[in-house]
Every structure is written in structure tokens, then in C-alpha cells.
Design a protein around this nucleic acid. Structure first.
Lengths: 198, 198, 198, 198
DNA sequence: ATATAAGCGAGACGGTACGTCCAGTCTTGGT
DNA sequence: ACCAAGACTGGACGTACCGTCTCGCTTATAT
């Protein structure tokens, strides 16, 4: 694939060491406390090696996320045939994976990275939030076919609501609980309007 | 209030100059590009004066937000008697105020500040997001009394959904549009489930 | 003198620590091996403090020389009435002070500094080599008055010869000896031409 | 000479490219501004090729000088029978070749190289300054045979004086002029002592 | 012919130093 | 007790080179 170019090939070991160092430092010191210099030092790598492949700490963080070095919520929803059951188990799994203090620190870091750098924001969205959102949309669309979702519902907006609340809670440092997730699901499924609008 | 203490009283002029300098720099350079030194220089103020009153740039930013120096979305909802109309006009106003590129840059900056500093996060939440959310909850609760919201709906979760999606869109750098806001409102009002499950 | 300006005054302690650190490092590692970073570290001073007052390592070295922190050959010649005796003792003193390996390393360093930087070159000349040369010229001119130097001799060129040979020997790493100095003095005093040109 | 060893023979083209690149960079940026990396880049040569043959930039500079790629003053003195005439024309030629700003920059660079590296210093002396000095000594010794130099004069010291003053002037950035050279020659030939001491 | 050997350009590697910016702190004179 | 000014130590920034190391390739002698 990478045609036989001249010159010493890129060191896979250095690449992984950088991403893992970034993840570790992110957990312990947050995005603000992260530094290119610190990443290089902990990875046992020259600073130039970091700058050769990543333009900023936001880019390193984004790559670490994309590489699975920063753990991600699951991209696939179960499909048992019952939408409510499936969304509930998906939400429970999400709550479980985000309640570890480490996990919320990482998410805050990703938010800060997205805030600081447009490119990082796009990459994180395209390969992290995006697929997750798409999985929800797909499941909802499948449910529509079997009549569990009304024909004219905007499944995209529903997915947005289900996903973004967690981001909001993490940033606001409000604890994320199962109850809260289920209340949200109830709102999204049934709405808050009176049961039988004519 | 500040009892007649001895010594020179705090300079109100310096205080405002600092907050306004912070706002201006935030617009042009983002939270990452903001510095205490830069704030002091632009405000024409000694660095010590900044440190005397604020421990970090996140604290300055939080104060600037609370002081109204960073413009905020409206805290009150109209109450025309029709919930859907009121929420629509509230959302439209929100969309309008967040679509300016400056505004989204400021929101990203506040998100970064919240991510970086727990104290700033709390202050921003308590006096910025919180009242806004509360206003929505209050309006929904009032609507419930007149039967426009079903009795067992969780108005808190509904408010969370309405507010947090915008945060998500700003961080993901997805454009915020009226259509999108109205689709979301439709989901929150009516749910996505089949219209009349019996 | 330095009018009551606002702001913290310059630290004399830091100034001396920098110059002494530069001298020590110069002795042990030469001008090439000297670094602004190393100077700051050894002086226990922030790097910025060095850069605030000196633009380059050549400037630091020049200042260290001017401040007497780098030892200098004597600027005054004895005047016993006999020129040859006085120049001999002056040369002996010069030979003595330049034969220490430390001293020749310092002189090579000053030559490198002069080579690297025009400003440093001028400062070193004006306050280091220059006065020394002038002292020789003055002594020669005084000797001319009493008939120990012929009327039309160019004392400036004679001083140049007496001084520059040592520089040449240090750079060429030829050992400087009393004999060599005295041979040179003989050439300068008597010339190499036949004893009685008509 | 280099016995028919196996393997690809050294590239003469690369060797010259390196030395010429070094000379060009020396002219424009001085010895301090010269770098192995820069030499390789300008020569269109791999860095390893430079390091394979030269251990340091001082070594490259020394080689460039020895190879005639850095222009040198003439090694031979005319011998018209009249010493004063010959030395005058030799000095004039030296003055002429050193007054070009490029030339003095190169000489300062050679001085810096000699200062930085003992090996380079020796090579430069042995094959650059040394032969030049020897040529002067030889001419003076020849002149002694015909009575133009007194029997007990130290021709070595005289040669040192004639050569080293130029080095001193270049480092001090004092302009080198014909007048100055001739004054020096007068001192060396006739001395500064009274004309006929008996 | 085909190994083996050495040189070549290219370019990544772990590092050091550069010169600048900023973090927080401290110390002036003045309000 | 506050203020502006500005110097202090410290540390990260992003860049330039250091000297070393692998690549694929070329060019020689030795089998």
C-alpha cells in the first residue's frame, strides 16, 4: 500500500506510545493540562516526532479517540424487535460507560479538543459521534417499518436528543443516572403533549 | 456592603475593562488563545490586578458571562397561553442568537471553560444554563396545569433535550437552523412513538 | 541615577550570576559549547531574564569580559625609564597570564564571539583590546620623547605587532613562550634590516 | 591508491558539492550559522554522506579551505632581489585579497573553526597558514644571505608579525589598508629603536 | 551470473537548544 | 489597600539541527 518510499519508515511503536501517553495524561490532567512536550516525554519520544505527525494536541487527542485508544461507547444497537427494550439497554450501557470518573474526564477533554480546533472537531464527529448517531437513526428507521415509530417522526432529531443530553450533563458535571436516561427516553418516545391530541 | 475598610477601594473601571477585554479576546482567539497576560495588557491593567480578583482565565470568563458582558440567551419565555407557539418563538430566538459566528465561538469558549475548571463549570451552570432551563421547566409546568402537557411527563428531561441539542450542535459545528429546532420541538412534544398506542 | 521608575528594579544578583555562569561554562566547554539555556540553568535564573538583558551568547560573553569577570591582561605598562625593560616585563606578564590553559580557552572563546557577532566584536575591542593597545602606544610615545624610539616610527603598528601575535598563537594553538615574546620584541625594537642602513 | 576495494566508490561529485555548499553558506551566514543539515540540503546530498566523510562542520570547512575551494592568499613571494620591494608587493596582494567583505567573512569563519576544534585548527595551520609563513621565512632567509637582513635577526618572529596583524585586524573588524600594511613593514624592517645605537 | 560490499538520497528517530509567550509571584513608586 | 509597571523563576510553545538509524537503490569487486 504505502509504496516503497525511500527513507526510514514511520515507527508504529512511536505512534502508539504517543497516543497512549496522550490518553494517560488526559485522564490525569485534563485537556488544559495536556502538553505536546508532556506527551513526548511520557511516550519517550522526541518532540519533533509528535509534531511531524500531529499539528496540535487536539489532533493527537482526536487520533487517540479514533484509534480506539480512548474507549468509545458502542456503535451498534441490539435489535430484539422491541424498540423500547433496545434503546433502554443501549442507554444503560451508555450510562454505565460514562459514569466512571475517568470516562467523564475523557469526554470533557474531547469536548475541549472539539472546542479548540475545527479539524479535530470534524474528525471526532465523523468517526466518533457520527457513527453512534447513525446507529440510533438506523434502529429508529427500522422500528418505523414495523410500526413502532410513527411515519412522520424525525428520527434524526430524536437521535440528537438522546445523544446530546449526555454531553450536556458531563459538561455541567451533573451526574448521569439510569433514571434520568429513562425519563429522557420516555420524553422522546411519547412526547410531553397530551396523550391524544386530536 | 463592603464595610468601610481602609485602603483604596476596588476600581470598578478596572473590573469592567478586564471583563470586556476577556470577551473581546475570546471572540477573536478562543478560550485556548486567551491568556491572563493578554487580558491585562488589553485592559490596560496590571497583571496583579487581574490575579487579585480572579484565580484563572476560566474564572474571568465565567464572571464576564454572569455580568452580561457576554451576551446570553433570554431567560424568560413568553406565555401566550399556547405552549407550542411560545416554545417555537423561544427556540427561534435562541437559534437567531446562536447563529452569529461570534456567538458560537463564545459558546465553545464557555464549554472549554466549563471543561477546564470545575468551579467555573458550576458558576456557569448555576447562573447561566440553570436559570434558562428553569424557565423552560416552569413554562412546561404551567402548560401542564392547563392540559397542554400530559400529567406524568418529565418536564425536566424535556427541558434538557431542548437545551442540550444546541450545545451539541455548536460543539460539532453543525449549523443550527430553524427547521432543526422545530423538528426537535416536534419530537419533544409528540414523541416518536405511534400516535395512539392503546 | 536610574530615575525612580515604576516596576521591580533589575536584580543585580541575577546579573552577576549570569556573567559568572557564562565564564565558568566558557572555561569548561568553549564558546561553541556555550548555550543561553545552559547559562540560565547554571545561574539559577529564568531563560527570559537572560534574553531580557542580552540578545545573544556573544553579548553575554562580551559583558562578562568587560565586567572583569573574565580576567584581563593589565592595561598599564610600568615606566622605569628604560623602554626595553618595561616592554619585557609587560610581555612576560602577558605570557604568564596567557599560558594557563583556562586563559587560552577564554581567549579563543572571545575570538569566536568576535567572529560571530559584530557588536560583540566592537565592544570587546573598545574596552578590552583597545585600551591595552593604547597603553602600549602611550608608553612608546613617551619613550620617543626621551630618544628611545626613533622620531618617525609608527608606534601604532608596533603596538599592533606586539599584541596580535599572541592572538595568532592562541588560535593556532602554538605555545606562547618567553623566548618567542622576546624574539618578537627584538624584531619590533631593532628591525630585521642590516644594522647600519646608510 | 585506494586499492580496488569492493563496494561503490566514493562519489567525487558529492564531495565537491559538499565543499562548495559549505563555502557558499559560510559566505552568507558565517560559521555560527553553518550547519551540517544545511550543507547537505544545499549540496543535494544525504546527511549521512556528509557524516560519513567529515566528523564536524569545522572539518568540512577545513577541507574546503585546503581544497582551494575557499580562496587562499598566495604561498609564494616574488624574488626580484630586493626584499623590501618583494614584501611590499606580497603585502599589497594580501591586502587586496582580504579587503573583499566576503574574504574577511571567510577568514572570521576559519578563525571560528580553529577556535572550536583543535583538529581543524591544526589542519588549517599546517596547510594554510603554515606554508604561507614558511614562504615568508624562506624569503627572509634568502635575503639574509645577500645582506638585506641582519645576521642575528629572528626571521620567524618577523614572519609572525607580518601575518598575524592581518588576522587581528579582521577579527577586530578594523579595515585593512595598504598604508597600515606598509607601516607594519617599516616597523619590521627597521625597528622602532633609534636609528644608530652604537 | 550472482553474491557481497560499500556508497548513495531520503527521511524518521530520540534529543538539545533556540527564542518567544505566558503563568504566577514579587517589588517598586504612586493614588 | 489598591493601582500600573515591570522584573523574577519556571515551563511549554513550535522550529532547527544534532548525530544515528533504516529504507530502496546503485555501483563496484569477488566468486
Amino acid at each position: 500500500m504505502t509504496a516503497g518510499r525511500p527513507g526510514r519508515p514511520r515507527s508504529e511503536q512511536a505512534r502508539r506510545a504517543v497516543l497512549e501517553a496522550a490518553r494517560d495524561l488526559l485522564k490525569s490532567k485534563g485537556f488544559e493540562g495536556l502538553s505536546m512536550e508532556g506527551i513526548a516525554a511520557r511516550a519517550g519520544v522526541g518532540k519533533q516526532t509528535v509534531y511531524r505527525w500531529w499539528p496540535s494536541k487536539a489532533a493527537v487527542v482526536a487520533d487517540a479517540a479514533l484509534d480506539g485508544i480512548i474507549p468509545q461507547p458502542p456503535f451498534v444497537l441490539p435489535d430484539t424487535g422491541d424498540l423500547h427494550t433496545d434503546l433502554t439497554s443501549w442507554l444503560d450501557e451508555g450510562v454505565r460507560s460514562m459514569t466512571a470518573p475517568e470516562a467523564s474526564a475523557l469526554i470533557r477533554a474531547l469536548a475541549a479538543a472539539a472546542s479548540a480546533d475545527e479539524t479535530a472537531s470534524n474528525r471526532l464527529y465523523n468517526q466518533f459521534t457520527g457513527p453512534n448517531r447513525q446507529a440510533v437513526v438506523d434502529r429508529l428507521d427500522a422500528a418505523r417499518v414495523v410500526g413502532q415509530v410513527r411515519a412522520d417522526a424525525d428520527t434524526g432529531s430524536a437521535a440528537d436528543a438522546l445523544i446530546s443530553v449526555n454531553l450536556y450533563l458531563v459538561l455541567a458535571r451533573d451526574p448521569i443516572t439510569q433514571e434520568r436516561a429513562r425519563s429522557l427516553l420516555d420524553v422522546v418516545m411519547s412526547g410531553i403533549g397530551p396523550a391524544h391530541p386530536q
